[in-house]
């Protein structure tokens, strides 16, 4: 029987010091659901009234509607959490080791610490909405939560950001939640996955 990713010792410590033993190990359920840990991939955030214009200057898409996510390239996305808060996700690069600067990028665009505060998981599979329905009060079915939508809500009673987008060509939910709650949330997802034939 495979061990749980968050209880396994790390043979090769990742370059990024983590507060929990995350890795790229994947917990999978063949044919139905796959839960992947992308926490070591790069993500950064900005908050402020100047951020939309700054994104355009960087050649990134301007996402004007809150709670939406748009592709910004191959394995790259911009996620709008409000009219003034945006996260940039980069699946091609590993996470930055240093902390983001505490100074404004522009007068009204301040960096956020989402790399260091939130884990990044990706849940794919046809039953992903049915699985989340066991843990989350928001309807995440395709009809009301299509690709490109984001929900800031609770999962298993903890705060989570759910973003519906493709990862390596497969649609699924990216989950962002507090790193200190990662072990609990992973076990809650694993427990919920049992119903769907998880290995």
């Amino acid at each position: 029987m495979r061990g749980r990713p968050y209880e396994l010792p790390i043979a090769q410590p990742p370059r990024l010091p983590c507060r929990y033993p995350c890795s790229h190990r994947v917990r999978c359920a063949p044919g139905s659901l796959t839960l992947s840990d992308l926490s070591l991939q790069r993500r950064s955030g900005l908050r402020g009234s100047d951020v939309p214009d700054w994104l355009v200057q960087q050649g990134l898409p301007r996402v004007d509607t809150p709670n939406r996510i748009e592709a910004a390239g191959e394995q790259q996305w911009v996620m709008a959490l409000s009219k003034r808060e945006f996260w940039m996700l980069d699946g091609n690069q590993t996470a930055l080791e240093e902390r983001p600067a505490s100074v404004a990028v522009t007068p009204n665009a301040w960096p956020l610490y989402c790399q260091h505060s939130h884990v990044w998981w990706h849940l794919s599979g046809d039953d992903r909405a049915a699985l989340m329905a066991k843990l989350c009060g928001v309807d995440l079915s395709e009809a009301v939560f299509p690709v490109g939508h984001v929900a800031q809500t609770q999962m298993a009673r903890i705060s989570v950001i759910v973003a519906h987008h493709d990862w390596q060509g497969v649609a699924g939910f990216s989950l962002f939640l507090d790193q200190s709650l990662a072990a609990y949330a992973w076990s809650a997802l694993e427990d919920a996955m049992q119903e769907f034939g998880a290995c």
């Binding site: 809150p66 709670n67 928001v138 800031q152």
Partner: peptide
């Protein structure tokens, strides 16, 4: 106003 109808526990 930002996220829509949600459970009061949120």
């Amino acid at each position: 106003p930002l996220n829509g109808l949600r459970n009061i526990s949120e």
